[in-house]
């Protein structure tokens, strides 16, 4: 059955810069996905609950404040605790190269840094979601 991919686009933490998140949300929609947009100031708990209730295929998060090392892995951990680790987790924002290996290690499937074309993000999600 041909169904749209469902993606949560979330802004964890207190960072209010949502230009990137919104551009990505629109690009995902234009690629035929259903985007559930959460708005600002989401806690990892809220993001995980949203992903579960929405039966999302993917959680895409953006942080520009430097809190990524804390917040991204927490989302992955909580998903695992809830048995929802079949949901793909990706992140983006101002993230130093040095931090990326640690984040990948923690279970974030990909990190998209500034300058990444939205088409790269779209293709990555399409080919990496864990459910058909």
């Amino acid at each position: 059955m041909d169904r749209p991919i469902r993606v949560i686009v979330a802004k964890p933490g207190l960072d209010g810069h949502d230009r990137g998140a919104k551009v990505v949300a629109r690009a995902l929609r234009d690629a035929g996905m259903e985007v559930i947009y959460t708005g600002l100031r989401q806690t990892p708990e809220q993001i995980v609950e949203t992903a579960i209730q929405e039966d999302a295929d993917c959680v895409a998060m953006s942080i520009l404040s430097g809190a990524h090392n804390h917040l991204f892995p927490k989302v992955v951990r909580l998903l695992k605790e809830k048995g929802a680790d079949d949901i793909l987790v990706v992140g983006g924002g101002v993230i130093p190269e040095d931090d990326i290996p640690g984040l990948i290690e923690a279970g974030i499937a990909a990190i998209f840094t500034p300058g990444t074309p939205t088409s790269v993000t779209i293709d990555f999600i399409k080919s990496n979601i864990k459910r058909s």
Binding site: G13, L14, D15, R41, T43, S65, G66, A67, N69, H70, L71
Partner: peptide
Amino acid sequence: DLPTQIGYDSDHPLSEGEVGKV
């Protein structure tokens, strides 16, 4: 930092991971 900008003390739950960052 963001907690200061949003009127939260550093020990507020939402400040976690954000203290002193930006």
